[in-house]
Amino acid sequence: MAIKLKNSLTFIPVALLFFTLGYANAHLGPLNEIAVKACATKEKSQMCQYEGGHNDLYLGTCQYMADELMCVRNQPIQFIEQPEGTEQTKHTHNDNKYGFN
């Protein structure tokens, strides 16, 4: 009984360590360049917005991420309706830019 309890108590700190490392790595990726540009002339907590590549509008406030000020969405994504007869913006992904296949 004492051995099972000791093993259980060892498992908890090890599991917490792995969860913490995974959380930190999730925030190490490249920043969205458009979101960074949206706050280029603003200060922290100012309202900001930028358009995504699929006729969507992101609304939020400027916040620091990875020592850079960027627009962080804090409202629902809004769809931008295109006037009739205009072609939807073409958008491509360059997944290989960051090593994704």
Rank of each mutant, 00 (worst) to 15 (best):
L9V: 11
F11C: 03
P13M: 11
P13S: 09
V14E: 03
A15N: 03
L16D: 04
L17K: 00
F19T: 07
F19H: 00
F19I: 13
T20V: 13
L21R: 08
L21C: 11
G22L: 15
G22M: 11
Y23R: 11
Y23W: 15
Y23F: 14
A24M: 15
H27C: 14
L28P: 05
L28Q: 07
L28H: 04
L28T: 12
G29C: 09
P30K: 07
L31F: 09
E33S: 08
A35D: 03
A35N: 07
V36H: 02
V36W: 04
K37P: 00
K37N: 13
A38K: 12
A40G: 02
T41L: 05
T41K: 09
K44F: 13
Q46I: 14
M47K: 14
M47Y: 09
C48N: 09
Q49C: 12
Q49T: 03
Y50A: 07
E51H: 07
G53D: 06
H54Q: 06
L57T: 02
L57F: 10
L59K: 13
L59F: 13
G60K: 12
T61I: 12
T61K: 08
C62S: 04
Q63N: 14
Q63H: 10
Y64W: 14
Y64E: 14
D67Y: 00
D67F: 13
E68L: 10
E68K: 15
E68N: 07
M70E: 07
V72F: 06
Q75N: 00
P76A: 01
P76W: 01
P76I: 02
I77H: 01
I77K: 13
F79G: 03
F79Y: 08
I80E: 10
I80F: 04
I80P: 00
E81G: 07
E81Q: 12
Q82K: 06
Q82P: 03
Q82S: 06
P83E: 12
P83H: 14
P83V: 01
P83M: 01
E84G: 08
G85N: 12
T86H: 11
